[in-house]
Amino acid sequence: MTTFNPMPELAPQLKQLRLSGILDSLESRNRQAIEGKLAYTEFLAMLIGDEVARRENKKFDMRLRRAQFRTTKTLEQFDFERVPTLNRALLQDLAAGRYIHENAPVLIVGPSGVGKSHLAQALGHCAVRQGVDVTFTTCTALTQSLNAARATGIYDRKIGALARVGLLIIDDFGLKPLRAPADEDLHDLIAERYERAPTIVTSNLDFEEWDQAFATNRLLASATIDRLRHNAYCLELDGRSYRDPKVAPAPKKAADRAPKTAAK
């Protein structure tokens, strides 16, 4: 009796339907179905489940690449012992995506080296897992890219694209003074995203010092910061720096360096 092998015909048909990923698990699932005496519908459900999982993983990897995180920082990697005053309950709530659904800003402040960028990227990583498109950038790089877009005549298109990003993370706000047209560009972007999309901002400046980030235009500073702080979730970090220098071992004493005399 000749056994019919459908694989030569099945493979090109699956590729035509853009279901070629099923081929990766088809043989093992077929063997599992035979050994377990599964119904046809159970066998089909397993194959479809594999294809859905494969596509979700592919989308996740793509969103992760587009986010352009500096490094892959997650909440699991964060050293909470260094920041004992951190509101962990609020952080876990944010990780679950509350601020995303509310289109609310998240403001993270604290001295250098306490983990602001880490937490911002970790929240971004959580958002990627939840299917949100994320863009991570420093404030300097952001304003430079907007200025370059103006020079090439695509400023409105660039602002529009950034306004539509599911989650925008702006790192190191206030690290360098904002002068025209950078201050205006940042204001335009924040105004476009206001109550329409969530934005995470980190800064070394205390909240009451944020207006100092704008070199000259205090009116523009007030309008921008007012939109950022409205309904925002705030995380204040205070602790030991991650960037503590390594301590060199103490030099040996002269007596320790002297050769020992063998006992007689």
Rank of each mutant, 00 (worst) to 15 (best):
D79Y: 00
L26I: 02
Q92A: 06
A141Q: 06
Y99A: 01
A254G: 14
C139R: 02
L167W: 00
V114W: 07
I200W: 08
F80Q: 13
E208Q: 02
H118F: 15
R65L: 10
S25E: 14
A180T: 06
A262D: 15
L119Y: 07
G49D: 05
A67E: 03
L119M: 10
A53T: 00
M46V: 00
R70L: 11
E102A: 14
C139V: 03
V165W: 01
E195L: 11
T72W: 06
P8Y: 13
V132G: 09
F80S: 12
G97T: 07
I22N: 04
A127F: 03
E76T: 14
A180Y: 01
R227G: 11
A151E: 11
R240G: 05
A95R: 06
R227Y: 12
D24Q: 05
F78M: 12
L168Q: 08
E76F: 13
M7C: 03
V52M: 11
G110T: 09
I22C: 07
N147Y: 08
R18M: 11
R196Q: 14
L38D: 02
L17W: 12
A11Y: 08
I200N: 08
C126R: 10
N103V: 01
T138H: 01
I169M: 01
H125D: 05
L107G: 04
L14F: 10
D256Y: 06
L64P: 03
A67D: 02
L237K: 09
A96Y: 13
L23R: 04
A45S: 09
T261F: 09
A33E: 15
G36T: 01
M1F: 13
W210D: 03
A122M: 01
R29D: 11
T74C: 00
N231K: 05
E76Y: 12
P249M: 00
E209C: 04
D183A: 06
I100R: 05
P198I: 06
D188V: 10
A255E: 14
R196Y: 10
R243F: 15
L142A: 05
F136V: 10
S222M: 14
W210E: 08
D156K: 04
N30S: 15
T74P: 03
R55A: 04
N217K: 01
E42G: 00
A96L: 13
T152K: 09
P12H: 05
C126H: 07
G110P: 07
I190M: 08
R257E: 11
A39K: 14
E56K: 15
N147W: 09
G115C: 04
A221R: 05
T41V: 05
R29L: 06
Q68P: 00
C126M: 09
L162P: 11
V247N: 12
L19W: 05
T140F: 03
D188M: 11
P198E: 02
L119W: 09
A250S: 13
Q77Y: 04
M62R: 13
N103I: 00
I169S: 04
A191Q: 10
D61A: 15
P249S: 06
R129K: 08
L228E: 06
K116Q: 02
T137M: 15
A248T: 05
I154L: 12
